[in-house]
Structures are given as structure tokens and as C-alpha cells.
Amino acid sequence: MKKTCVLLSGLILALGVATNPNLTNVCATVDPFDESAEVVTSEEKFVAEDPGEIEIETAKVITGENKEEEENKEEQEEQEKEEGSGTVEYTVKPGDFLSLIAGNQMGNSSRWPEIVELNKDKYPSLLSNPNLIYAGWVLTLPTGSKGNTVTPNNTSNNGNNGGTVTGGVIANGQSTDSSGWGSASPCEPMPSWISSEYGPRDLFGHSFHHGIDIPVCSGTRVNAMANGTVIAAAFEPGGGNYVKIRYDNGYETFYCHLQSFNVSVGDRVEAGQQVALSDNTGQWTTGAHLHMGVYLNGQSVDPRSVYNGFPPKR
């Protein structure tokens, strides 16, 4: 019975391929694994430098002893601000970056950390990546700045979703991000359809798909989507071989069910650089494909909302 089913399946599949001209035949155009890629041997990886002392300029320590003092100081500063003549707001324009805004609006480009401090609640991503701001953001600047929008006291500080940057912001404005996001495709070639979209679904008992499934053959090239750093490259039973990359713009991509990866944790990657080959490893796979998830601040986002290079929805 089993053999009959398999034979029938093969027949149906063959008929489907033979008669549907719209399916892009990605298999025929897949390049073989690029053996000229740089390979680091185990011995080279592990020859270590002396672990000396490392200075981190941004390290900040708040001890139990001075915590109360710091809190009182912050409260006092906030009170002084409220008593001022009003907030100064600045609307980010394409091409802006924080030190430029600080220089033009506050008279000193090195005061950009003050902008982060004043806006961290409205735009929490500033804490993790002050390099990334979006055209259209309304930043609060210190009293005395020039600004391009002036509001009276007690103006409510409306953020977007409590400060969470959503894909809608990127779509509406031009990013000042220099990570190269959007310039590289997650895989090559990209097929003409997506087999499983982000969002609710019911497959193997999972009701929400936290990524997007791209139907590509085993051995399809998988790329970094922007400049960033590899933060995980490992195997787990569920996802099989997987790679996680943290990009300079704050996004992270998670690729899994891979055949292999040619990067290591800590490696810097560039937009478009090959990082892996796709396959069918791990659990919950119905055939060779690339599963990719996009994350921001630990939460999954719809990949379509942050990258417009996917094929149209069916």
C-alpha cells in the first residue's frame, strides 16, 4: 500500500512539474557549493591570544550603594526639565544621523548620547543601535536646542507601539541605516513563490509560523541580508543546522534546516555574503526548503514587512 502511495505521489508530482509553466525551476540553476570559500581549520581557530584585560568604554556599573543616589539624581533632572520652557522636538529627515543632529541642533555633535537618553523610552531600539534612526521619527531634544518642531508643556509623548519599531516605520520613511539592509536576498536564486507565510497556520500542531518558508532545493545558497555578526551557528533537533545573524541595524535573521554553514560565531559578514546551504535537516520539515525568521528586540516580525524582495503572495 505504501509503495502504491509513493508511486502515485511521484506520478502526480511529475505531472505537476510537467504541466505548470509558472513554477520557477530553481533546481536547475543552483550553483554547486563554492569550494573556493575561505575555510578556517580547527587549529587556526584555537590558537589564542593572551586573554588580557579589555576595556569597554560603555561599561556602566551601578552598585547597590549608589543606586538610591542615582535614582534621586534622575528624579531631580526630570523635574528640572518639566519646569523648563517646553520640550524641543526634531523630526528626523532622510540622511540624518544622531551626531549630525546633535551638532546642528545642540551645537556639539558629541552630545548625541543625550538624544538617546531622552528618547530611549519612545524608541527603545536606540539603546541597542543608536546608528539606526528613521526618517519621520520625532526626537525630543534637550531644552535650548533649535529643533524643527516646538511643543508646549505637558504634551503627551506618543510613541509608536510604546516605542517598538515596526516594519511600518521602515515602509513609510527612508532609513538612515548603513548596514546594507535590503540590498541582499536571503537566498539565491529566489523562487517565484513562498510555500508558507508568516502568521497563523496549522502544521504538525503548530498554530503560528514565526518565519517564512522558501521552497528551494538542497544546496541553495543562503546569504547574509546585511552587514552584521554571526551570533549562533549550531544544530538542534527541531531546526536542524541553523545560523543566526545580528545585523548592524538591529535586526536578526534565523535560518534553519540547513545542510551546512560556512561561518562561525563571531564572524563579521557583509550583505550578500554566503553563510550556508539550504537543506532539510531537523524536525517539522516537509521537504527541502529554507526557513527564515526575522527578529527585532527578541520578537519575531513578518519578514515581508522588512524586506520587499520576496515573490508576491499567492
Partner: peptide, 26 residues
Amino acid sequence: SPLSHGKVKLSIDGDLLGVYESDQTL
């Protein structure tokens, strides 16, 4: 700590004691 390119040795007082440069194998 991948962004530090390895495993960071840290005292609970906040002193950085060293970094073992490594990938995911360590």
C-alpha cells in the same frame, strides 16, 4: 558573547578579566 568574539571572563564586581577568542566550539 559573540559580539565580543568569544567567551568573556567577568567578575561579579564588573571587572573584565579576559576574553577567550573563540567560535561556537568553545
